[in-house]
């Protein structure tokens, strides 16, 4: 079954006919060519596909594209504005919070959710809140430092 949907992605409305079973992550990656959102598992465990749906973090591999019809999605591609990195991007760069980079977009989108829900989170609370995002490279130490640094920066500005 096909269905025409309109999804606002990073501020732009996109209308497309999609198969009803298409996952939101495939709509972003295949239909809109926004390949910054990744897929790392089949079981909602790794968090690579994390995006924001109407302002909340969601797993785009566990939603159908048709469920986003009429709603607003924000992906990693929206973070950089006019050539300026978002504080979360800057923090991951400056704290060596990434190595292979594959988990990074999902990790940053989740981290933004954490910072929004728990602005003054301690390092332990940051770790707890990132439980749904797996990284195999960094051992998380510098990811926690990145999120801490971004949270502080965002609180200042």
């Amino acid at each position: 079954m096909e269905q025409t949907i309109t999804v606002t992605v990073n501020g732009t409305a996109h209308t497309a006919e999609v198969e009803q079973r298409m996952l939101l992550v495939h709509f972003l990656r295949e239909t809109l060519n926004l390949t910054g959102t990744h897929i790392g598992c089949d079981t909602s465990t790794c968090g690579c596909c994390t995006v924001h749906l109407d302002g909340e973090t969601v797993l785009s591999c566990s939603l159908l594209a048709v469920q986003a019809d009429g709603r607003a999605v924000r992906t990693v591609e929206s973070l950089e504005q006019n050539g300026e990195l978002h504080p979360i991007q800057k923090a991951f760069h400056e704290n060596h919070g990434l190595q292979c980079g594959f988990c990074t977009p999902g990790m940053m989108m989740s981290a933004l959710g954490v910072i929004e829900q728990h602005p003054g989170a301690s390092d332990d609370e940051i770790r707890e809140a990132l439980e749904g995002n797996l990284c195999r490279c960094t051992g998380y130490q510098n990811i926690v430092a990145s999120v801490r640094s971004a949270a502080d920066e965002m609180a200042r500005s």
């Binding site: 566990s62 954490v114 829900q117």
Partner: peptide, 9 residues
């Protein structure tokens, strides 16, 4: 339950 992202849905 699950993770923050799972609790959102």
């Amino acid at each position: 339950v699950g993770s923050m992202t799972i609790r959102n849905r």
